[in-house]
Simulated assay, not measured.
Amino acid sequence: MTVGVLCIHGFSGGPYEVEPFTAYLRAQTDWLIETPTLSGHGEELHMRGFTAKHWLMDTELAFRALAKKVDEVIIVGFSMGGIIALYLAQRYKVKKLVLLSAAARYVSPKQLVKDFKMLATEAYHRNLSNNELFLRYRSKFNNVPLSATIEFMKLVQAVAPYYKNIKNPVFIIQGKLDGIVPYHTAQFLYDQLASKDKHLYFSDNGKHHICYGEDCSAWFLRVLEFLKGQ
């Protein structure tokens, strides 16, 4: 029985967002792992002119290509990729789902303010170049057009009515200090999904880029056990 894993990154991101987890899976399994880059995304952003339809089509094509090579497909989705994973599960035969910081709701203003206060403090002390959050988001502030953000919001709204139809086994991971997706979103998703086999893990210190959290090795193992059916 051959297994394929489709890993879908987030809005205005790239495969690097899930790279620690995909590297772990490659080291621990012989599964075929694919990490497509959505249109306009990647290390350098060129998002103007691309829509939610483009991103959904990107992932559908990637799913179909992977499904031809393996017997079973697992989907791992980070942030917006988590919502796309649910979209694909509604349309195709998906063995299991892993939702990382899934953006069913987005932007926790409270945590975002905390993060930016931290940035302001470090800027004052001239330590900004060493701040991981600043480095990750600096390019995004300048290169994400409003039209793309609107498309992201449209995508989330379009998939929301289907949550209650999703019955696939699912593992949800969420950081409590996520400044982009309010952490209670994970509980909302857990309650909405019709899956009987569903799991929820909260990382006390995890932020939005959950694959880079201090406790990621703990949930990496738990998710792998879930995916292997142990």
Rank of each mutant, 00 (worst) to 15 (best):
residue 95 K to R: 11
residue 145 P to N: 09
residue 197 D to V: 10
residue 204 D to K: 11
residue 153 M to G: 05
residue 68 K to C: 04
residue 82 G to S: 08
residue 172 I to S: 04
residue 83 I to G: 00
residue 70 V to A: 03
residue 219 W to E: 04
residue 83 I to M: 14
residue 84 I to K: 00
residue 50 F to T: 15
residue 176 K to F: 03
residue 19 E to Q: 14
residue 53 K to N: 14
residue 29 T to N: 05
residue 174 Q to R: 06
residue 151 E to P: 09
residue 92 Y to S: 07
residue 230 Q to T: 02
residue 148 A to M: 13
residue 67 A to C: 05
residue 26 R to F: 01
residue 230 Q to I: 03
residue 107 V to R: 11
residue 82 G to I: 12
residue 165 N to R: 12
residue 109 P to V: 07
residue 210 I to E: 03
residue 78 F to A: 14
residue 179 G to Y: 09
residue 113 V to Y: 13
residue 136 R to M: 09
residue 13 G to K: 03
residue 35 T to N: 11
residue 36 P to I: 05
residue 168 N to G: 00
residue 125 H to N: 11
residue 68 K to M: 09
residue 210 I to T: 02
residue 113 V to N: 06
residue 122 E to N: 13
residue 203 S to P: 03
residue 175 G to C: 05
residue 153 M to V: 05
residue 198 K to P: 07
residue 199 H to P: 01
residue 193 L to I: 12
residue 212 Y to K: 12
residue 143 N to K: 11
residue 31 W to P: 03
residue 80 M to G: 02
residue 46 H to V: 07
residue 118 M to I: 07
residue 230 Q to F: 01
residue 40 G to T: 14
residue 174 Q to P: 07
residue 74 I to Q: 04
residue 8 I to K: 01
residue 89 A to I: 11
residue 133 L to W: 12
residue 127 N to M: 11
residue 68 K to F: 00
residue 184 H to K: 14
residue 4 G to Q: 07
residue 61 L to M: 15
residue 125 H to L: 10
residue 71 D to K: 12
residue 110 K to G: 06
residue 68 K to D: 11
residue 42 G to E: 04
residue 51 T to M: 08
residue 166 I to L: 12
residue 122 E to Q: 15
residue 114 K to Q: 13
residue 53 K to P: 00
residue 147 S to A: 15
residue 79 S to P: 02
residue 22 T to R: 04
residue 177 L to A: 12
residue 76 V to T: 03
residue 215 D to Y: 14
residue 135 L to Y: 10
residue 196 K to E: 15
residue 154 K to C: 04
residue 20 P to E: 09
residue 199 H to F: 14
residue 24 Y to K: 09
residue 62 A to P: 02
residue 18 V to M: 15
residue 157 Q to A: 15
residue 179 G to M: 01
residue 196 K to C: 01
residue 75 I to M: 06
residue 147 S to D: 15
residue 163 Y to K: 10
residue 120 A to P: 00
residue 98 V to G: 00
residue 198 K to W: 02
residue 183 Y to L: 00
residue 101 S to A: 15
residue 36 P to G: 06
residue 84 I to N: 01
residue 203 S to C: 14
residue 161 P to T: 06
residue 87 Y to W: 14
residue 141 F to D: 02
residue 119 L to H: 06
residue 161 P to I: 10
residue 207 K to C: 05
residue 137 Y to H: 06
residue 121 T to W: 14
residue 69 K to R: 15
residue 33 I to G: 06
residue 130 N to E: 08
residue 12 S to L: 05
residue 36 P to A: 12
residue 74 I to N: 03
residue 149 T to N: 05
residue 123 A to H: 08
residue 150 I to H: 07
residue 151 E to Y: 07
residue 127 N to Y: 04
residue 15 P to L: 03
